[in-house]
């Protein structure tokens, strides 16, 4: 595993930047939210990678095992995933409301309508 070095973290950064790109460059609000999810998952991957120890096993105590991976990062991410879907749902609810009052979920059109008003 040694040769992996910092490879994990670089992939995390690439994923994070792809998510970031979707958020700032996409016009569609739902796609923006999906970009945000990608960003979020990349953070999860970073935390879980940090918690891994070479040769460790899952942090469930068993006889004859001495090396466990980090349970703390698992706890943090476990709760973050469920909180993440709850907040994404909130975002989607807002998108639904925007669609109903503007008739569109494209950011440009929303701006245009705002200017008209």
């Amino acid at each position: 595993m040694e040769f992996l070095g910092l490879f994990n973290y670089w992939v995390v950064i690439v994923l994070m930047m792809i998510g970031f790109y979707i958020v700032i460059c996409s016009n569609n609000l739902i796609k923006k939210l999906i970009g945000l999810t990608i960003f979020q998952t990349s953070v999860f991957i970073m935390y879980i990678s940090m918690g891994k120890i070479d040769g460790g096993t899952a942090p469930i105590l068993a006889e004859g095992v001495t090396l466990y991976s980090n349970p703390l990062t698992h706890v943090l991410i476990l709760t973050a995933i469920v909180v993440g879907i709850a907040t994404t749902a909130l975002g989607l609810a807002i998108v639904v409301r925007i669609k109903e009052s503007y008739g569109t979920v494209e950011e440009d059109d929303i701006h245009a309508k705002d200017k008209q008003a």
């Binding site: 999810t37 998952t41 999860f44 879980i48 990678s49 918690g51 891994k52 460790g56 096993t57 899952a58 942090p59 469930i60 466990y68 991976s69 990062t73 698992h74 991410i77 476990l78 995933i81 469920v82 993440g84 879907i85």
Partner: peptide
């Protein structure tokens, strides 16, 4: 996450994500 020994997390992500 399974590969990283985080079975609890993998479980949640599979159901949610």
């Amino acid at each position: 996450f399974v590969l990283m020994d985080a079975h609890d997390v993998a479980f949640t992500e599979a159901a949610v994500g």
